[in-house]
Amino acid sequence: MSEIPLFVFSMICYVLAFVGFCTHISLNREKFYRPSRGVAWAGVLAALAALGLRWYDAGHPPLSNMYESLVTLSTLIALTGLLFTARQPLPMLEAGTCVISILMFGVASLFSSHTRPLIPALQSYWLHLHVSLAFVGEALFAIAFILSYLYCFQKIMTGSANSSSFSSIHEKITCYFVVVGLPLAFVTGMAVLASHLSRLPAYAERWSGLVWGVIVPAVVTMLLLMILTWMYRGAVHKGVEKWLPDADSLDKLIYRAIALGYPLFTVGGLIFGMVWANKAWGRYWGWDPKETWALITFLVYSIYLHVRLARGWNGTWTACLSIAGFLVTMFTLFGVNFLISGLHSYR
């Protein structure tokens, strides 16, 4: 039995949950929240079942190539989002995790979904430990990223009502750059990637999936959200005030997500990776691009923790560091495989 219908079902659930959360926030109707969460849980359970089915069929965990990595990470992000908000409802964060999961699944459609037997280097229990633990850490970084985005969004929304919200013009520019610039940069990046892939014979049949599965829905949703936010900014402002915690609490939530994810990523991604590399290649560190970028991810989050814990920095600048950390994480996962070849370039 193919797992694809289950993944498609889970994506439909994420879309419905996203619409539900948005309706709940914008119309301020509490009755939409629980059903939306229920639908999101249905999506996560379907995705988990699909991953289990794939594991059973292939005989190895779905972590061995880009397609499997992206669908697993997509599921983990949705699951982590739901668990993170189990005690404290944060509909905007939950909507954000649905968006990231959908986009990640859309990008996964670029890669072949055929199950292939594991190459000799990947036949190790360290594959389970190294990749799965690193992915849980990355899922928590994704939560921190969404919260950081919402932090900047909240700053802008409160800034439009209260001019003292921003301490400097740089902070204002940065917040706008994050809120408007990041989605635009994402869509532009995806368009450049699609144009590049359309010239490669290996992606001749799949690059259009990126256009119809990621770019077009992202642009339509983005435009719709921007227009609606602008038209109903009063209602959105009320929604943000009601459904997002204050800036200080949001900052603490960002820290909490990173404090949970950082040890998991460090132990899973770096230390277990070192142990495995030592067993497979005879050296624990070889400055392979993937290793180096994993180290860069660790260093960026280390800077975040140092400045926040020891210097007491918080607010927009630490939120930006968290965003930078997630962008580096995504480059480590995705960009290195495309742009820099090395021992870890599994596609």
Partner: peptide, 24 residues
């Protein structure tokens, strides 16, 4: 000083990034 540590980590990050961009 923590400032020095953060600066050193930032320089290390930058150099490591350069190392992956410049063929070795």
């Amino acid at each position: 000083s923590l400032k020095s540590a953060v600066i050193l980590i930032a320089i290390l990050t930058l150099l490591a990034t350069l190392g992956t961009l410049v063929p070795q």
